[in-house]
Structure formats: structure tokens, C-alpha cells
Computed example of a mutant assay.
Amino acid sequence: MTATISLEYPFTGRWIAHNSPADRVPSHRTELFATALAIDFLPVDARGRTAPVTLGSLVRPEPPERFTGFGRAVLAPADGVVVAVSGAAFDHPAYRGLPSIRYAATQRNRISSGWKALAGNHVLIDCGGPGGGAIVALCHLRHGSIEVEIGQQLRSGERIGRCGNTGNSTEPHVHIQAMDGPDPRTARPVPMTFKGSLPHNREIVDCR
């Protein structure tokens, strides 16, 4: 396995960690597509909520615009070169409560459709690093928000797009993973830290 790559958080503001490899490996309950060490970050408001909970949100899908972080800037977590961009997916409704159970039942179909169906709109960045380098993927970006192109040199902190709800996503968030090659079908996961550590599930990260 490639040595751990140290990254900056790919955002500003308040976010909550979810599916963290600090608590469980594989973090997303699968080894597919080099996701074993991936982590999700959900944008939250000052009260730690992704969106207000109502009776309606528990029984029917919601527009992603209702969520506090939909459209928040997503930043390059390290210096690197863009090696892949995919931005054709449209944002779909968010699912909480009973709708999330129905959405989970369709997971098999998304897996069978491959990486792009799971990642939605995404950017892959060759970030180099110790032990042979790492490709960092940032996924579920908002439709029409990607601002970079293949071959572009990036500096850490540059905006690459905005938080969305595309691909295998129940509500707006950013999925980030590192891997030892650009093809998630054959790559191996690379461990990550953020500013030298890895947040646990439900831990609030505040990047002001």
C-alpha cells in the first residue's frame, strides 16, 4: 500500500465526517472501486444540521437546494494535476427517513453501472506524495459547477467545483478518496490524513 498522503480539508466552513476509516475499514462497507479508506463530509449549519428535519423530510424526497451545504465550494486538497473530469450528471433529490430506505434498495443497480454512476460528477487529481504518489478523487459535485479541466495544474485551496448531490448520494456531501492509480476499477486505496489527523464519524470539522 502506498504511504499515507497528507491533505488539506477540501472546503471551508462547518462539515461533519461520515463513513470514516478512523472508525471502520472498509469505511463504505465495500472494497470496490478503491473506496475502502474513503471518507464523506456533509456540510452543516451552526447547529450541526445538514437541513432542518420535518415530517415531510421523513416520508418523501427533498430538493437538494433545501440543504445548507448545497453549492458550497469544494477545494483542491493538495497541489496536483487534474487527470480526469466528469460533470454530466444532474443533481437528484435528497433522501432521508423512509425515502433513504427505498433508495438503498437500488444500490445494486448503481454498482452494476460502474464508477461514474457511483461517483456522479467528480474530479481526479494526481497529487504526487511519498511512496509513488496518489490520485485523489472528489465526488458528488454539483451539476455545472466544475471549474477545472484535464491537464490543469492546481494549487491547494483552489476551487474545483461545488458540493452537489450526484451519483450514489442520499444528500449533498463530498466523498473523497485517495488511490494508487487513476482507474478506480483496478487501483488500490491509499490512506489519507487531513492536517495530520483523520476525523471520526460524527466529528465536526470547522475550517474558518
Rank of each mutant, 00 (worst) to 15 (best):
V148G: 08
G13V: 11
A178L: 09
I101E: 11
C139Y: 00
A134Y: 04
M179Y: 10
L32Y: 05
A119T: 04
I135S: 04
V136L: 04
T30Q: 06
G71V: 08
P172Q: 10
S20T: 13
G164E: 13
E203T: 12
F90Y: 08
Q107C: 01
P52S: 00
N109Y: 03
V25M: 03
F90L: 13
H140Y: 10
A78D: 05
V81W: 05
L37Q: 11
D126H: 10
E149P: 00
R29T: 06
C163R: 07
K116E: 13
R96H: 09
G56F: 01
L37I: 00
V205S: 09
G120T: 02
L42S: 05
T54A: 03
P189C: 05
S169Y: 09
H173M: 12
R102L: 15
P191T: 02
N121E: 04
V123C: 08
A73R: 14
G129Y: 03
N109T: 08
Q153A: 14
A76W: 01
H143R: 13
G131V: 02
C127Y: 01
L198W: 06
R24M: 11
R208T: 10
L154D: 10
A178Q: 09
W15Q: 10
V190F: 08
F194E: 06
A84V: 04
R47I: 00
S145W: 11
R159G: 08
F11I: 12
F90C: 02
G114P: 07
A104W: 10
G196F: 09
T50H: 01
L198H: 04
E65I: 00
R60S: 13
E147S: 15
G164F: 11
G164A: 12
I204E: 14
H92I: 06
R66A: 13
C207I: 15
I111F: 15
S169V: 11
D206M: 03
P77I: 07
P99S: 06
C207M: 15
P63V: 06
T106R: 15
E62Y: 00
W115V: 13
A117P: 03
V83Q: 11
F70E: 02
T30I: 03
L141R: 08
I150T: 15
N109G: 14
G129D: 04
C139F: 00
E158A: 12
R208L: 10
L124R: 11
A51L: 00
I16Q: 15
A17I: 07
R60N: 01
L124G: 01
I111K: 04
T35W: 01
P21T: 06
G87K: 05
S100E: 12
G13F: 10
L32A: 15
Y9L: 14
G56M: 01
L75P: 09
T4Y: 01
T193D: 05
S86E: 14
A73V: 12
A94N: 03
T2N: 15
V205T: 09
P77G: 07
E149D: 13
V82D: 12
R24S: 10
P64L: 03
P10V: 09
L42Q: 05
P182G: 15
C163S: 13
G167Y: 08
D45S: 04
R108M: 06
L124S: 10
G48P: 02
S113L: 10
E171Q: 14
R96T: 13
Y95E: 09
P26D: 02
G181T: 07
T12L: 13
A34D: 09
F70M: 09
T2R: 15
